[in-house]
Amino acid sequence: MNDPKIRVLVVDDHPVLRDGVAALLANHTDMMLVGEANNGSEALQRYLELRPDVTLMDLQMPGMNGVEAIGAIHAENPHARIVVLTTYAGDAQAVRALRAGAAGYLLKSSLRTELVDAIRDVHRGQRHVHRDVAGEIAKHVADEPLSEREVAILRLVSVGHANKQIAARLRLSEETVKGHLKSIFAKLDVADRTHAVTVAARRGIIEL
């Protein structure tokens, strides 16, 4: 008797991506697409309805994002097997997703070559993280992370606020804001505000 097919749910707000995943899975007899969702809230609802073996999850979606949806699904079923699909290789974002409960992390550019193996690996209880993402995680594993306050300041910097405006928004002194910026620059190994924002966005610490 043949093994049952791996039942897959795909969550992404772009229909073209969902159609592409469906076409890929249709070429493999050991797996089948059982459902689709286009945001995090719908992902949780569909997961509870369908109880798929593997869920493919985008991260950037309107409303409840992918990391929040992973956490919500894991709260319902700690054994849920989830593979992230994203365009971003940033280590900070990947670590958030893996800590929330994802077992796989793929770049959308690698779906054609890597998706099927990732589904099989995660279904077997293994991890599957794209090599570029794994390299970024390893590169920054010993770095001191930014504090919540530092991330909040960097988000305000990214939308063009000056130190005085940041101080007023966060009810801090300008000197305190300057001190936090100095710490941010040291942790990110950058020399100025623009470079700090660029590096933080690339790594997934903030979103632009």
Rank of each mutant, 00 (worst) to 15 (best):
residue 1 M to C: 09
residue 1 M to K: 13
residue 2 N to A: 14
residue 2 N to P: 03
residue 5 K to D: 13
residue 6 I to L: 04
residue 8 V to P: 02
residue 9 L to D: 04
residue 9 L to R: 04
residue 11 V to R: 11
residue 11 V to F: 01
residue 11 V to A: 12
residue 14 H to G: 01
residue 17 L to K: 06
residue 17 L to W: 00
residue 21 V to T: 14
residue 26 A to M: 04
residue 27 N to D: 11
residue 30 D to V: 07
residue 30 D to Q: 07
residue 32 M to C: 12
residue 33 L to D: 04
residue 34 V to N: 07
residue 38 N to G: 01
residue 38 N to Y: 00
residue 40 G to D: 03
residue 47 Y to R: 13
residue 52 P to T: 14
residue 53 D to E: 08
residue 53 D to T: 05
residue 54 V to Y: 01
residue 55 T to E: 11
residue 55 T to N: 09
residue 56 L to A: 09
residue 67 V to E: 04
residue 76 E to G: 05
residue 81 R to W: 02
residue 83 V to D: 07
residue 85 L to Q: 11
residue 86 T to Y: 02
residue 94 A to E: 04
residue 96 R to C: 02
residue 96 R to P: 01
residue 100 A to Q: 06
residue 103 A to M: 10
residue 105 Y to F: 12
residue 106 L to S: 12
residue 111 L to S: 14
residue 111 L to H: 07
residue 112 R to S: 15
residue 113 T to M: 05
residue 116 V to D: 14
residue 119 I to C: 07
residue 120 R to T: 13
residue 122 V to A: 08
residue 123 H to F: 06
residue 124 R to H: 10
residue 128 H to P: 03
residue 129 V to Y: 02
residue 131 R to Q: 13
residue 137 I to A: 12
residue 138 A to G: 11
residue 148 E to I: 09
residue 150 E to P: 07
residue 153 I to D: 07
residue 154 L to K: 13
residue 156 L to T: 06
residue 159 V to T: 15
residue 161 H to N: 11
residue 165 Q to W: 00
residue 170 L to N: 13
residue 170 L to A: 09
residue 171 R to W: 00
residue 172 L to G: 03
residue 174 E to S: 13
residue 175 E to D: 08
residue 177 V to M: 06
residue 187 K to G: 09
residue 190 V to C: 07
residue 191 A to K: 12
residue 192 D to N: 15
residue 195 H to P: 01
residue 198 T to G: 02
residue 200 A to V: 01
residue 200 A to F: 00
residue 203 R to I: 01
residue 208 L to V: 14
residue 208 L to D: 06
